[in-house]
Design a binder for these strands. Structure first.
Length: 782
DNA sequence: CACTAAACTATTTTT
DNA sequence: TAGTTTAGTG
């Protein structure tokens, strides 16, 4: 019928072509072609059932997943020009919600010009709230740790759809009320700054649709990817989005795998699978389930180990019977090391063997870690042994100081209302401007806001420059004048008679030059890095490129999509419009808006032949021919938190189960070779070295892993009271000692003749991303 | 009142 | 290690 359906196996096809009406749960284990199925289903809904793309909502969890799906649809639908899949409402939950709020937020009193508060803004406002409250006499701790716990409190309530007024009153403890006070004050702060935080994106949409469900009344089908990662609010959104259109009531497709739920800490609830089933069954809606069991990724040894691991879950779980399609099947290897440095050495030696044997390339190898900080030791060792690697950290690029500063200066250029942006610029650039002076300026701004005006930071600063404000030191006034100049001159550059690209890049350079950003930040890092300027400039270049090459999103998506149009007063113009505007200024504004919600964080050079180091969470949805999972120690995986004995039994089990799922995700990333390891001792920071024991998850029956004892250090058992770091250093620097280290067997011995290098190169292409759409199809066919 | 230098302390995962 | 908090100085 459709060619893309021929490329699916029977189960996949059943899922993709399931009836339009009713609820479909697709239980897709790792490597079973989940994305392929959901993409095919979307195509089928549009082609076969003739659903208009603008009536279909496809919600994903990450930007990457959304982008990938669009890419696949591009290929899939190339031959069906009559279907315009660009009109699909596809994106992360957050981005879809923001689009809805921009358009209909007014109905719940939201100012349509709102901005998204990023993590830094949000933290700042929590701190602010704490400060305000302590000034009012409430006794509050404001250490970093405490701020974190306040944020957690707020977030967890928001994720349960509880605004301050909805929080159930605490029975006894009075610290609870303090938390609630902070929550209230924090919400006020958001409002005063005309921003909403990440959780609000979802929560406010939830509130909106509860009151005004007709806003999204024409939605005919809702699809959710990685459903196990949804929280209560997201589940509610699915119910509401699919619960209004009478001709297409409760038409939902969700795809996911409860075993891969590793975002519980962020209030994801894998139980949503069961909840949803109950909810719709009670409504009399047909609920069908399809399980995908054919695995196209891993060898059966890897799959067996994974299944064995999950068999130890405390919570209920359905057994999986994943079938491998791989002919070759090498054992999963396990080794232990005296300490984490030795472990790193073993890993690098092993990688060297695999790579030198021309069996794998560096880009085929990934090292997956429970936590980011574990990468340090391994990185050092990889540098030492000259192995190229890349650390893929979620948003580290955006967290660089130079990037954050540039973003803030550009925010100020883009909007006079953006106090949060302006304030960071002032703090950075104006000498002599401390908390007291900042407070004076902020008060002026908030006063304007209180009078229901948008607020205009630039005007206030001009007032200061003209000496109309008391309490600001002369030295600071001079600095403020400079900031004014930077902002104004940058704006002028955006109105120049040049191309958009030129305008943006000269504006960018203008800020960089006038703030002397590079030299100032370089100075701060001088004692830690060799050539900090280089790195800073490279980062700035990257940002500049992203800005200049940014394409304006189709924000008009919702514009014409709704018949209910006349029912709803259309959102008014944002009142933030600057006196003079230009295409490049619009572009700048959109760029700033988009960064946190739409823009995919670049995963370094995809083509570079490098080893990938990333966290287990960061590895989700990806795959590599060779995977190392080091540091499988109690206290790391499972993490210390899960081992906390002060938790009650149910919570402890739930936490342990999530940790186990973490390991499940890690091991199921591997296609051909999987190496597990742990160390007996962690050489650490100031807190001193810690003795470690083998992770409880490694207590497996015989036969699932092959221990390679050779990786253990030869020599006397470690004396734990002696400084081990020196020991490790000797190991590393002394060749004679190194020879006693046996390391791994040569790759040839392990692989035997079953694997020829030629045979392997065919299937050992790197990450999923590079496979794109065409490749896996061809691969699966054979 | 702001700035600097020394001291401290916490290390998960992220839209 | 690095980011933040503090105490002491100008």
């Amino acid at each position: 019928m459709y060619q893309f359906l021929d490329d699916l196996n029977a189960d996949q096809r059943a899922a993709a072509t399931a009836p339009l009406d009713g609820v479909l749960l697709v239980l897709a284990g790792p490597g079973t072609g989940k994305t392929k199925v959901i993409t095919a289903r979307v195509a089928y809904l549009m082609l076969h059932y003739k659903l208009p793309p603008e009536d279909i909502v496809v919600a994903t969890f990450t930007k990457k997943a959304a982008n990938e799906m669009v890419e696949r649809l591009d290929v899939l639908l190339a031959q069906f020009p009559e279907v315009d899949h660009k009109k699909l409402m596809i994106g992360t939950f957050h981005s879809i919600c923001v689009r809805i709020l921009r358009r209909y937020g007014r109905l719940i009193g939201l100012n349509s010009g709102f901005k998204i508060a990023d993590e830094a803004d949000s933290r700042h406002l929590v701190k602010k709230a704490v400060k305000t409250l302590s000034q009012e006499g409430v006794d509050l701790a404001s250490k970093e740790q405490d701020v974190k716990s306040y944020k957690n409190y707020i977030s967890s309530h928001k994720n349960k759809a509880q605004l301050p007024d909805d929080v159930p009153s605490a029975k006894s403890a009075n610290h609870r009320n303090k938390y609630l006070d902070i929550y209230r004050e924090y919400q006020e702060e958001l409002l005063r700054n005309n921003v909403i935080d990440f959780d609000d994106c979802l929560l406010l949409t939830h509130t909106l649709l509860k009151k005004h469900p007709y806003c999204m009344g024409r939605v005919k089908h809702v699809l959710v990817d990685e459903f196990q990662d949804t929280n209560a609010v997201q589940l509610g959104l699915v119910y509401m989005l699919s619960g209004y259109n009478e001709s297409h009531l409760h038409n939902v497709t969700v795809v996911g795998d409860p075993d891969q739920s590793i975002y519980g800490f962020r209030n994801a609830e894998a139980e949503n699978f069961f909840r949803m089933e109950d909810y719709y069954r009670q409504k009399g809606v047909t609920v069908s389930k399809v399980s995908l069991t054919q695995n196209y990724r891993s060898t059966s040894n890897i799959l067996n180990l994974a299944e064995q691991l999950m068999g130890q879950q405390f919570g209920k779980r359905e057994q999986k019977k994943l079938k491998s399609n791989k002919k070759v099947n090498l054992p999963v290897e396990l080794f232990s090391s005296a300490d984490n440095k030795v472990e790193a050495i073993s890993i690098s030696k092993k990688i060297k063997e695999l790579v030198d044997g021309a069996v794998f390339r560096c880009s085929d190898v990934a090292i997956l870690l429970r936590a980011g900080f574990l990468s340090r030791v391994i990185e050092q060792e990889l540098i030492h042994s000259n192995l190229p690697y890349q650390v893929v950290h979620g948003r580290s690029f955006w967290e660089n100081k130079e990037i954050r500063l540039m973003m803030n200066f550009m925010r100020a250029v883009a909007s006079d209302m953006d106090w949060l942006g302006y304030s960071r610029c002032l703090e950075f650039h104006v000498a002599g401007l401390g908390p007291k002076s900042m407070q004076i300026i902020e008060d002026l701004f908030m006063e304007q806001r209180a009078h229901n005006e948008p607020g205009n930071v630039l005007a206030i600063l001009e007032g200061i420059a003209e000496g109309r404000v008391k309490g600001i030191m002369a030295k600071s006034v001079a600095g403020i004048k400079e900031v004014l100049d930077i902002i104004k001159s940058s704006r002028k550059l955006l109105l120049d008679d040049k191309t958009e690209q030129e305008q943006l890049s000269t504006m960018f350079n203008n800020i960089v030059t006038k703030t002397k950003l590079v030299s100032i930040i370089a100075k701060e890092r001088a004692d830690k890095h060799d050539s900090p300027e280089e790195e800073i400039e490279a980062n700035l270049n990257e940002l500049q490129n992203q800005l200049v090459s940014f394409n304006i999103q189709e924000e008009t998506l919702l514009q014409d999509a709704y018949e209910t149009e006349d029912l709803i007063e259309v959102a008014d113009e944002s009142f933030d419009a600057l006196a003079e505007t230009s295409a490049s200024l619009d572009k700048l504004t959109q760029f700033l808006d988009s960064v946190y919600l739409y823009e995919e964080t670049k995963d370094a050079k995809k083509t570079a032949p490098k080893i990938t180091i990333t966290t287990v969470h960061g590895s989700k949805g990806l795959e590599w021919p060779v995977v190392f999972v080091p540091a499988l120690c109690d206290g790391i995986l499972p993490s210390q938190y899960a081992l906390n004995t002060s938790l009650d039994e149910a919570k402890r089990q739930a936490a342990l189960d999530e940790e186990r799922r973490c390991m499940y995700v890690a091991v199921t990333r591997a296609k051909e070779r999987l190496f597990l390891s742990y160390h007996h001792r962690a050489l650490g920071f100031s807190m001193g070295d810690q003795a470690k024991t083998k992770s409880r998850f490694l207590n497996l029956p015989k036969g699932f892993v092959q221990s390679s004892k050779a990786a253990m250090l030869k020599g006397p058992p470690l004396n734990l009271s002696q400084p081990t770091s020196r020991f490790a250093n000797v190991m590393r620097s002394s060749p004679s000692l190194n020879t006693t280290y046996k390391g791994f067997q040569p790759a040839s011995k392990l692989t035997g003749n079953a694997f020829t290098p030629e045979g392997l190169t065919k299937i050992s292409k790197p990450t999923k991303k590079r496979l794109g759409m065409g490749r896996p199809l061809r691969f699966l066919k054979k």
